[in-house]
Structures are given as C-alpha cells and as structure tokens.
C-alpha cells in the first residue's frame, strides 16, 4: 500500500498538523456551476484522480489499470456484473481496503492532488473526510441521537451537537419520523429508516465525499425512491459515488457512469476487473462507445 514514487514536495500529508484541502476551499467556488453540471463545457472540479489503479487480494489481481476522474458535486455511478471489482475500487477512495489483510493497492488515488496511498497519509483522517454508506444498514446498537453524533464527537465537533444531529437527520429525510424518539435505539428502526440513518450518520460530519456501496439493495422501491431523492437533494453539497446493480437507478440518479467488467487478465491465470467505459450517464445509456457497455445496459449481458 505504498506509493511507487516519492511524493512531490507540494503533496501534503493529511495529518492534523499539516493542512490539506479543506471543505471550505472546495465547496465555495463551485456553487454556481452546479446546476449546469451536465453541460460538457463546464467541467466541474476534479475531486479524485485515479491513476493506473491495480488492486490485489493476495496473489489475486481483482482489478487492473483503472483510470478515472471523479467530479465535484456530481453523482458518479459504478455499474457492472458481480465480482468485477466495483466495491473493491470504491473502497480505495477511503482506504477501507486497508482493513482487509490480504488487500494491496498499486497506483495512485489523488484526492485534490494528494495521493491517498502516500505513506504519510493517515487513513483515519481520510475516512473523516470521506464518508461511506454500506450495502447493509449498519447502525450502532445505540440511540438514534448517538448514532448521528458519533462522527461529530470523533471529530471533536462538540458545539451545537443537537443542531448538527437535527440537520443531518433532516437532510436524510428522517427527522420527522424519529424526532420524538431520538433517545431510542436505532436498532428499532425499519431497514429503510436504518439506511437513511446511516446516510445521516455519514453526512453529519459534512464530509466532502460520500461513498455508497449498493445502498438500496436491501430496500423496497419506496425506501429506494426516498434515498434517490435524498441523493439529489444533497448533491449540491457533496460528491457522491454509488455502486449499484440497478441500471435504472444509475440512469436516474447519476451524472456519470463507469462500467466495469471482468476479463481474463494478461497473465491469463484468472479473470480481473477492468474499467470498460466511463462517460456521462446520458451517453453511457444512449450511445455507449463500447459494445460490452451497450450489451450490459440493454440487458443482453448478465
């Protein structure tokens, strides 16, 4: 998990004492272009620049040669058949792969120019700025309030905690349902409510990026629709990456779509995930340039 080249001097490690790109710096200057983000001539700011990313689990090469840019205040969808490495790539954006002992990452994931895999970068700091929502809702067995307050407390944001909790719950469209039972356990919520709670928990620290790995796969269509609405509402403040198996969902919510698939790798010993095509969602679903993409989005390929 080390960078291959020594970091350039201007690359700042993201430790508490060395300042790195802050939310304020990145949010402020791009509020205006947001509504027109689809316009190709108004390329929004790049948040992540992934360069030659290869991920291994032990000797198994799970994905290879991924290059893509993630743009600010956009929703980027990762689609592709099961096992093609969508989750694996997503987890590189907040160094969650560090938790898997066998996982190894090559290449660069530049976050505002800072390589997340630089030896000086503290993964804990990375995860404070980049939130994650998982496939299965995973609230803590604590009260609703304490779940939302978890991140702010970790980050030392002790002031106005009540307001922060309320704001996050409102953003996640959950406030009205839970405002009378904030002190009750979060485990008593329904699956869809729990997932919105997890989203609220992730955005309570106002991260710049929210990563979502199939956030709706355990939910019914109504709960799914609420979460999709919620994504649209918060995208003016956040950059969202979502893995989904639901093609309509990708088409509905995302600005850009990346299609991954697996193919026999050059060494020929197993199948490895590759990024086939990455473009605006409109183009990906109406006029993809790669035949494999077309087959997949039209359902001709499993």
């Amino acid at each position: 998990m080390t960078a291959e080249t020594p970091p350039e001097p201007e690359d700042l490690p993201m430790t508490a004492d060395a300042p790195s790109p802050t939310l304020d710096e990145t949010v402020g200057d791009h509020h205006a272009p947001v509504p027109e983000a689809h316009e190709p001539h108004l390329e929004p700011k790049v948040v992540f620049d992934v360069q030659d990313l290869n991920v291994f689990y032990g000797a198994f090469k799970a994905v290879r040669d991924v290059n893509l840019n993630i743009h600010q205040h956009e929703i980027t969808a990762f689609i592709g058949p099961s096992g093609c490495g969508k989750s694996t790539v997503l987890r590189c954006f907040d160094r969650m792969n560090d938790l898997i002992e066998s996982a190894r990452v090559e290449g660069k994931v530049l976050y505002h120019g800072v390589d997340l895999y630089d030896a000086r970068v503290d993964p804990v700091e990375v995860r404070k700025r980049i939130g994650m929502v998982f496939q299965k809702p995973n609230p803590f067995p604590k009260s609703i309030y304490d779940n939302i307050a978890f991140g702010p407390r970790l980050a030392g944001m002790k002031d106005d905690l009540d307001d922060r909790v309320e704001k996050a719950l409102r953003q996640a469209a959950l406030w009205d349902e839970v405002k009378d039972r904030l002190k009750k356990s979060a485990m008593g919520l329904s699956g869809g409510q729990q997932q919105r709670l997890c989203i609220a928990r992730a955005i309570a620290v106002e991260p710049e990026v929210v990563l979502m790995d199939e956030p709706c796969s355990a939910l019914d269509p109504i709960a799914t629709a609420r979460i999709e609405d919620l994504m649209q509402e918060i995208k003016s403040e956040y950059t969202i990456l979502i893995v989904t198996h639901n093609m309509q969902q990708a088409a509905r919510v995302s600005d850009r779509t990346a299609f991954f698939t697996t193919e026999v790798n050059p060494e020929g010993d197993h199948r490895t995930g590759v990024l086939v095509e990455y473009d605006s969602t409109d183009k990906m679903f109406s006029a993809p340039s790669d035949e494999r993409t077309e087959n997949y989005v039209t359902g001709r390929f499993g």
């Binding site: 404070k128 980050a155 928990r201 992730a202 620290v205």
Partner: peptide, 10 residues
C-alpha cells in the same frame, strides 16, 4: 459491518 461502520466514520 459494525467494525466497518466505525472505521468508515474515521
């Protein structure tokens, strides 16, 4: 999932 929830929050 519980561990990931906590780690994921930093």
């Amino acid at each position: 999932s519980q561990r990931e929830a906590a780690y994921g929050m930093g």
